[in-house]
Simulated assay, not measured.
Amino acid sequence: MTPALKLGLMRILLINPLSGHFKFDAMSMPPLGILVVAAKLREEGHDVVFLDRNAILYGSLKCVGEPTPLLLSQVDRHVRQAMRQHQPQIVGITMMTCQMRDVRRISVLIRKMAGADTRIVLGGYHPTCEPSTVFRDIPEVDVIIRGQGEWAMAELAAGKPLLQIAGVSFRQRVAQPRIARLGDWVTGRIRPFDPSEIRHNLDSFWSKDRNLTVMPARDLIATDYYQREGDAIINYYYFHRPASIVTAQGCPKRCSFCASKLMESKLFFSPAQQMIEEVSHLVYDGGVTGLFFYDINFPVHRKRTEAFTTAMVEMGLADKVKWLACASADNLPYDLLPQMRRAGCVGLLFGFESASQRILDILNKDIDVNLHQKAVDACKANDIRPQSAFIVGVPGETEC
């Protein structure tokens, strides 16, 4: 039986859906964003349960290749069990484009079990960019939170009227008395969304007072689910116990295809000392041996990079954990690469996107294509594996 909560507090189920063909990358790293949402909700006193369907399918059930209907039904069983035992009043689902199919599956399952009493809330990159099509294609969804979701989700759970929550789009329905505080729901009308309402509150990740910082609720995940012997799970590196980490937000570039300007409109960098504290916590308390920095452009802040890598070596952390990060060839601190390698950096992921200067100009990359080769050569010279993402089929592209 679900324990009673204090008046005004809610039972909330958070779900990371299956990620389709991105399964190995998806399950190898705990989903940091939704774990920050979980931490914020728990900080407010709400009862939170978290399910990562990727970790269940590929970690717990040891799926290899495409999942069979039987395996998918076993993953669904975890959702049904959580719905029965937890009886959530809100189900929050994070979503990228590759997760659309599974979000549909989950939403139908949840709506059949819970009826209209449970609010289904989506967040993440895809709903942020395409709220109208999500409402159209997944009719079970009630609310979409655009941009960073932890503050808006906390306000929604606290009963703040939806019209007063920045960055929220919602499908209004007729309210039942016990959920009237979630908003005035009138069937069929979708509130027009103003992009300027996207909520950006950087203190949800970082604060001058570390005691006020909301760190990801990593205790909600089963770490063993993210360990698969022999898999090349992070840029072709195998780490026995991997973790993801975010220490910066935003990007100084203006690439036309990137959604970061919708999710993170301002640049913000966590101080080097705070980075070291979190890495130390992950290594010594969590047994982490591999890190992936999700910062869009990790080394762009030169002084911070220098301070962080120096501390990693001096504190002996470089011997205990290896790490990878994202970078851009046009502001890569080439002279710091040897120090980054000594500090444990084993790989850098670049967004080269194309080998054509014309296509790069179309994408507003603001970079000389020749810098790509320079970055690759510099990484190899320092025993740092370079990797790159490419975009195929850019409008105006005529050949590969």
Score class of each variant (00 low, 15 high):
T97Q: 09
G92E: 00
P88N: 06
M83R: 04
A82G: 06
Q81V: 12
H86N: 07
H78N: 11
I90E: 02
Q99T: 04
V75C: 03
P88F: 06
D76N: 13
R101V: 11
M95D: 04
Q81F: 06
Q85F: 06
I93R: 01
M83N: 07
M83I: 14
H86P: 02
R101F: 13
R77Y: 11
V103T: 05
Q87I: 06
M95V: 01
T94Q: 02
I93Q: 02
T97P: 01
R77H: 15
A82R: 02
T94N: 10
H86M: 02
V75A: 10
V79K: 00
V79A: 03
Q81K: 14
R84M: 11
M95I: 05
C98E: 12
M100Q: 09
D102S: 04
Q81L: 11
M96D: 04
I90S: 02
V79S: 01
I90K: 00
G92V: 08
R84I: 04
M100F: 15
P88L: 08
M96H: 13
Q85L: 14
I93H: 01
R80Y: 13
H78G: 09
T97K: 09
M83A: 11
R77S: 15
Q87F: 05
V103E: 07
V91I: 11
M96E: 05
P88K: 08
M83C: 14
M95H: 00
Q89P: 03
D102F: 09
R101D: 14
A82N: 01
D102I: 09
D76K: 10
R84L: 13
M95T: 03
M100W: 13
R101I: 11
R101H: 14
R101S: 12
H78S: 13
Q89S: 13
V91H: 04
H86G: 01
R84T: 12
I90Y: 09
Q87G: 02
R80H: 15
R104N: 09
R80K: 12
M100T: 11
I90A: 07
H86A: 08
I90N: 01
Q81G: 09
D102L: 02
V103P: 01
M100A: 12
H86V: 02
T97D: 07
M96S: 10
M100Y: 14
V91C: 11
T97G: 11
V79Y: 00
H78F: 14
D76V: 02
